[in-house]
Amino acid sequence: MNQLFVNNLTVIDFSYLHTERGILGESWIVDIELEGDLDEQGMLFDFGDVKKKIKNIIDHEVDHKFVVPAAHQSISINTQGTLAKVVYNAPSGEQIIHHSPLESLTQIKDVEISKENISAYLCDRILHQLPSNVKGICIQLREEVIKGEFYHYSHGLKKHKGNCQRIAHGHRSTINIYRDGKPAHDLEKQWASIFEDIYIGTESDIAGNPLINGHPHTHFAYSAIQGDFELIIPSRQVYIIKTDSTVEWIATHISEQLKAQYPTSQFRVKAFEGVGKGAIAER
Rank of each mutant, 00 (worst) to 15 (best):
R21Y: 11
R21A: 15
R21F: 08
R21E: 10
G22W: 12
G22N: 03
I23H: 04
L24N: 06
L24W: 08
G25S: 09
G25T: 08
G25F: 11
G25L: 09
E26I: 00
S27I: 06
S27A: 15
W28V: 08
W28K: 03
W28E: 03
W28S: 06
I29T: 11
V30F: 04
V30A: 08
V30P: 03
D31G: 10
D31I: 08
I32T: 08
I32P: 03
E33C: 10
E33D: 09
E33S: 14
E33V: 07
L34G: 06
E35W: 03
E35I: 02
E35K: 14
G36N: 10
G36Y: 07
D37Q: 14
D37P: 00
L38R: 15
L38F: 11
L38D: 12
L38C: 13
D39H: 05
D39V: 05
D39G: 04
E40F: 05
E40I: 03
G42K: 07
M43T: 02
M43C: 05
M43G: 01
M43E: 12
L44T: 11
L44C: 09
L44Q: 11
L44K: 14
L44M: 04
L44W: 09
F45C: 07
F45S: 02
F45V: 09
F45T: 09
D46H: 15
D46L: 00
D46S: 02
D46Y: 02
F47E: 08
F47Y: 15
G48A: 14
G48P: 01
D49I: 01
D49N: 11
D49M: 13
V50L: 06
V50S: 11
K51W: 03
K51S: 04
K51N: 13
K52W: 03
K52Y: 09
K53S: 13
K53M: 08
I54Y: 06
I54P: 01
